[in-house]
Write a protein that binds this DNA or RNA. Structure first.
Ligand SMILES: [Zn+2]
Ligand SMILES: [Zn+2]
Ligand SMILES: [Zn+2]
Ligand SMILES: [Zn+2]
Lengths: 128, 128
DNA sequence: CCTCTCATGAGAATGATTCTCATTCTGATC
DNA sequence: GATCAGAATGAGAATCATTCTCATGAGAGG
C-alpha cells in the first residue's frame, strides 16, 4: 500500500515491532522523540492509518477514546486485553464467527462485519 | 439514579422513547430545539450519560467516533445495526457469552467485560 | 414562600485527530 | 551523479465531539 520507504515509516514500524500491546499514536510519537528518532505527529498518524488500511496492524479504540494500534498475526482474530497493563492475547472463535454471520443472515443483513473485544484484568494484575 | 425530575430530562427521555435506533447527543439536541422544547447541549450530554450509567440506555460508539444511545430492552444483549439506515435489531447469544467468559478464564483474566456488535446492510437498504 | 441543593446552559476548554501547504525527499531516469 | 515529478513530511491551524466552569435557575420538603 505504501509507496515510498522513508525513515519515518521505518521508525514507526520499528516501534510497533518492539512492543506486544496496543499503542496510541501520541505514545509512539513520544517514544520516537525520546529515542532521538523524532517523527512529526501528523506523520505518525498517517503512517498508522496506512498500516491499518493495508491490514498490517489491528486497531482498537479504548474507552478513553484513543485509538491504539498493534502489529498482530495474520488472519482474522479478536483480542483479550488487560484493562490495567494492556497485556493482549489474540483469540479465535470459529463458532462465534459462524454465529454472528448466521444471526445477521437470519435478519436479512448483508456485507456483515463485526467487532468483538474482551477486556478484563490479567492474572499478573489481579491481586490474590 | 437521577435525583430530580426536570423538564429537560423528561424531554431527552421522550426523544429516546420515540425512536428505535441509536441516536447521538447532538442529534437529540437538534430534535429538541426544532421541536421548541430546547435543552442545553451540556444537559443533553449529562442526561444521556446518567441514563447510560444507570443502565437505562445502551451506548454504541460508531466508526465516526460519535457516541450514540438507545433505549433497549432489559437484559444483556448485543446489536445488529444497519450501516446505512441505522435499523437496529437486538440479538442474544448465550453460547457466545459462554465462549467469551471461558476464553478469558482460560487465560487467567478476571472481571471480564466485552463488546460485540455486528454491522451490515439491512434488507431494506440492500438493492437486489 | 423559604431555603437548601442539585440542575441548567452559554461559552470556554480539552484532547484526539485531521487538514493545510510550503518544503523536503524518494525513486526512477538519463 | 544529476534531474525531476510526484509523494511524503511537519509545524501549526482547524475540526469536532465531549467536558468543564460557574453564575443563574428551579425541584422538593418544610
Ligand atoms: Zn490482532
Ligand atoms: Zn494486566
Ligand atoms: Zn471475528
Ligand atoms: Zn438499513
Amino acid at each position: 500500500m505504501n509507496q515510498r520507504a522513508t525513515r519515518q515509516r521505518r521508525a514507526v514500524d520499528a516501534v510497533l515491532a518492539e512492543v506486544d500491546d496496543f499503542r496510541g499514536a501520541q505514545e509512539i510519537h513520544d517514544v520516537l522523540r525520546r529515542r532521538g528518532d523524532s517523527v512529526g505527529l501528523s506523520t505518525v498518524y498517517r503512517t498508522l492509518q496506512a498500516l491499518a488500511d493495508s491490514g498490517e496492524v489491528d486497531v482498537l479504540r479504548g474507552a478513553d477514546g484513543e485509538t491504539r494500534y498493534r502489529r498482530c498475526s495474520q488472519g482474522h482474530h479478536h483480542h483479550l486485553v488487560c484493562r490495567d497493563c494492556g497485556r493482549t492475547v489474540e483469540v479465535e472463535g470459529p463458532a462465534v464467527e459462524r454465529w454472528m454471520d448466521s444471526v445477521a443472515a437470519r435478519h436479512g443483513f448483508h456485507d456483515v462485519a463485526h467487532t468483538l473485544e474482551v477486556i478484563g484484568t490479567c492474572a499478573g494484575c489481579h491481586p490474590g
